[in-house]
Nucleic acid binder design. Sequence first.
DNA 1: ATACGATACGTCGTATACGACCTATCGTCG
DNA 2: CGACGATAGGTCGTATACGACGTATCGTAT
Lengths: 156, 156
Amino acid sequence: MPAKRPNLGANGILEQMERDLAAIRRAQRRPIEEEMVRGGLTVPQTAVMQIAFQRDGISLKDLSREASLAHSTVSGIVDRLEAQGLVERRVDPADGRVSRIHATAVVARFVRDKIPELRRGPLGRALEKASPAERKKIAWALGRLRTLLEDVQSGA
Amino acid sequence: MPAKRPNLGANGILEQMERDLAAIRRAQRRPIEEEMVRGGLTVPQTAVMQIAFQRDGISLKDLSREASLAHSTVSGIVDRLEAQGLVERRVDPADGRVSRIHATAVVARFVRDKIPELRRGPLGRALEKASPAERKKIAWALGRLRTLLEDVQSGA
DNA sequence: ATACGATACGTCGTATACGACCTATCGTCG
DNA sequence: CGACGATAGGTCGTATACGACGTATCGTAT
């Protein structure tokens, strides 16, 4: 049963939202981390790999933008994926600055077979328990919150 | 202007939500990280300090539960706070296993003066731009999503 | 052609964040 | 009272995650 949610002041709502976001983050991270032991992949690695597969030859800059991560973070993730032979870095012949990320042949099968089931991970399972109306409301709220945050970020 | 949000299939909604959550995390983390350079504190450190202040003498276990973080994570954060003299560890006289976290005198002023303004950080500023109705909807959605995730977690 | 600002990326230092493991302490059962 | 499972927390190894900085390359202006 859910915890009590009394009427909160503006400050209380803020703190409650922060707590909820933290809890969401943790719950989302944990269950697939268990899978990692079996599959050898973490959540961010899976996400990066899927993007690299869908947009083969994507630059690291675009990849980091897609994943909402700093380029230095993605660089490290690609390092580890490369070490496992799941991804390749190739310098762009037309522009020596950009290194294009390519999914190796092994990945195609992996993405098609494993990812869908991983994708239907904690978030997917959680949403299955919600009604379509709830799903819509939650999806809207996340999109809206993201927009609000990004507007503040860019000084709007 | 916000990105297009076409009608998405069930899978598309999932991926969109994951992207939104990632972007929210990043946006929420970044701006206060800038403050860190000035104040010397990170977001998690601030959160932990506030909990330790509000519930003086809290055990590390309870503290980690409040913060939705693993106890090993909180232990490291407390290490750094302790090194800055903002927090103290004292072994519980009644139970030698638990180490109780106390905010030092310096912190009281800090929490009262600095935290409110930090709290009104990215999330607070973002929410100011939203209507009360939107705020309610977003708050509800986060709470609901959290509950759904935690129910799945506990096998409900 | 050369200088030079802009761009893309790699690297580094530090702070999360986690699970696995170890150790010390507690309660309880015999 | 001594054994022993349970509990709290510290430690370790690894993977994010970031900004700052360095380096190589590109475009452009001179």
